[in-house]
Every structure is written in structure tokens, then in C-alpha cells.
């Protein structure tokens, strides 16, 4: 099977998964107790049953549940995710206005993770069981064990309150690509990147160390290649395959991480909007962001699969 047919097949396999994702998203929000109408009218003591019914119809929450799902899906296919109950803005507009901040933060964390982890992983594997390896392993273990939101708080405590290099929260109303914002990005970016770097480093070290024991390494050494060439050309290429898969899986944890980190640093991205939506029971907004996340992660995994197949010619496409 050619690579192209493999890709097409994988794309087709995604359709039922997307369908399931939409059902879970909708079901979670609608089938559990909790009601936006109740919340909105809680502050208004004069609101009676008639007002509630009116509001429910206006939000499209009065119809039977399956009809609500069909209506929602109809909207999703045309790019219409409904509107925010309180502000009456279109959900898609809210998402697009917040997306760049979150993407930039995630990208920063992701790149930081790779840039730190790959050289460290190589170093640790080459100098296995020596001091440098032990230290870097300890640091990586700490990195995956530290709660990211607490790391954020500690960075604020040190970087903002003690050193005074950064403001305590993200600058308000500054455009994304201004110096103030980009300078501030370092704090949340480091926080997100730490977990990513640590887990990539751990995988990198294990897979490198495993490859180093293989026979082709002995063969390469035996024919007199310098150790540098053996490691960087032969071993690294093979161990990067497992890192590619991990890097894609990490998008899920980076997405989840950004939801919390944005809260810590008041970074004006989608994660903050999501928490706000959850607090206000803004069903349409919660569903749209959850669906976005699901689709994004599915695509990331697809890219990983394709890269994996493309990088390793031994893998058969079936």
C-alpha cells in the first residue's frame, strides 16, 4: 500500500471517531445536572416559570434532547456554533479572537520542550549512568512530578515578586505581538515547556540507550566511524521515531496544561475563556471549545502516524 492510500484510509477512519467526539461533547454538557437558565435567572428574583420557559426557547434548550443535538450538528457543519448566552456574540467569533494567544503559548512550550529535551536526552544516553545522566534524569523526573500551576506560581513569586523582571499578570489590552506580551510569554511558556521537555527527555534517553545496544551500532563502530557520527547519524535518527509519536501525544497535555496555565498568569487565551464558560454554564461555548480540542488532538495524532510511517520504511501501512 502506498503512503497516499494509507493517509486516505486513516482519514476515513477518523469519521466515526469525530462522530463519537461530538456525542461525548454534547452528552457531557447536556445530560448532566446544571442549567444555564437557572444560573442566569438566579440573580433576578422576579423571574417566574414563564420567563424561564421563554429563555429556554430562546437558547434552543426547550426541544427534546435528540433534536437539540441535530440542531447543534447542523450548525457545526456550517461553521455556526451558536451564540454566547449572555453577551449574544457568536461563539466562533469569540474563539477566533482568543485562538492566536493560545496557539502561540502552546507553540512556545512545545518548541521549548523539544529544544531542551533532545540535546539533553542525547547527552544522557551517551553518558549513561554517569553524573550528568543522573542529574538530568533527576531533573526530568522532577519536571514531570511538579504540578504545572504551582510551578507557575513559583515563577511569579521569583520572577515577578522577588526579581521584579516581569509584571504579576499578563499586560492587559496589549496586542499579542507587542514587546510586553512576548516578554511576558516567557513565564507561561517556560511553565508549559517544562513538563513537555521532561517527558520528551525521558523517552529520548530510553530509546537512545536502547538503540545504542543494537548490532548496527557495533557494526558502525567496527568499521571505524567516529563516535560522533555513530550517535548523531545512526542512533539519533532511529530514536527520533519514538519522539515524533510522543511529541504528537504531548499536544493533548499541552492543550490541557494551557487551560490551567492561562488561569495562573491571566494569559488572555482560549483556556481562560473555557474556564469562564464552565463557570457560567455557557453550553455553546463549552461544546465548541471541547470539540475544537478533540479535533485538534485527532489531527495531531494523524500527523504523528503519517510521520511515523514516512520516517520508518519498515512500517507497513496496514
Amino acid at each position: 500500500m502506498s503512503l497516499r492510500r494509507f493517509i486516505v484510509k486513516r482519514l476515513l477512519a477518523i469519521i466515526p471517531i469525530l462522530f463519537g467526539v461530538s456525542i461525548i461533547t454534547f452528552g457531557l454538557v447536556h445530560l448532566t445536572p446544571g442549567d444555564p437558565v437557572q444560573q442566569i435567572l438566579a440573580l433576578n428574583p422576579r423571574a417566574g416559570p414563564t420567563e424561564k420557559q421563554q429563555l429556554r426557547e430562546q437558547f434552543g434548550l426547550a426541544a427534546p434532547i435528540w433534536e437539540q443535538y441535530l440542531n447543534w450538528m447542523k450548525g457545526v457543519f456550517t461553521g455556526d456554533f451558536g451564540e454566547v448566552y449572555r453577551s449574544r456574540r457568536a461563539v466562533s467569533e469569540v474563539i477566533y479572537s482568543r485562538l492566536p494567544e493560545t496557539l502561540l503559548l502552546g507553540l512556545f512550550g512545545w518548541v521549548f520542550g523539544l529544544v531542551i529535551a533532545i540535546p539533553t536526552g542525547i547527552y544522557a544516553a551517551v553518558h549513561k549512568d554517569q553524573l550528568g545522566d543522573t542529574v538530568s534524569r533527576f531533573v526530568a523526573l522532577s519536571g514531570i512530578s511538579i504540578p504545572n500551576f504551582w510551578l507557575g506560581l513559583m515563577l511569579i513569586l521569583i520572577g515577578s515578586l522577588t526579581l521584579g523582571w516581569w509584571p504579576v499578570t499578563a499586560p492587559k489590552r496589549a496586542p499579542l505581538l507587542s514587546f510586553d506580551m512576548l516578554w511576558y510569554l516567557i513565564l507561561p511558556g517556560l511553565t508549559i515547556g517544562t513538563a513537555a521537555a521532561s517527558s520528551i527527555m525521558r523517552v529520548m534517553r530510553t530509546s537512545m540507550a536502547e538503540e545504542m545496544n543494537k548490532e548496527y551500532v557495533t557494526a558502525a563502530r567496527a568499521k571505524g566511524l567516529p563516535e560522533r557520527t555513530v550517535v548523531l547519524k545512526h542512533v539519533l535518527r532511529n530514536s527520533l521515531i519514538s519522539v515524533v509519536t510522543l511529541a504528537a501525544t504531548l499536544t493533548a497535555s499541552i492543550v490541557a496544561g494551557s487551560v490551567i496555565i492561562e488561569q495562573v498568569f491571566a494569559w488572555p487565551g482560549l483556556g481562560q475563556t473555557f474556564i469562564q464558560a464552565i463557570r457560567n454554564a455557557e453550553y455553546n461555548l463549552i461544546m465548541a471549545i471541547t470539540l475544537f480540542t478533540g479535533v485538534f488532538i485527532i489531527l495531531a495524532n494523524l500527523v504523528a502516524d503519517i510521520l511515523y510511517a514516512a520516517l520508518d520504511p519498515r512500517i507497513r501501512y496496514d
Binding site: 463519537g20 457531557l28 492543550v255 490541557a256 487551560v259 464552565i278 478533540g294 479535533v295 488532538i297
Partner: peptide, 24 residues
Amino acid sequence: MRIVDVIYAFPGLILSLIIVSMLG
């Protein structure tokens, strides 16, 4: 396994967040 694939499409923390917000 397709059901597992669907669940895998979400970060676990986000699902937990939604569930707690709905259940209290």
C-alpha cells in the same frame, strides 16, 4: 477500541473539568 479512540481525543483533565462543573 473505537470508543477508546474517542475518549483519547480529549485531554483527561478537560473531561474531568466539565464533569465536575456539571456535577458540582
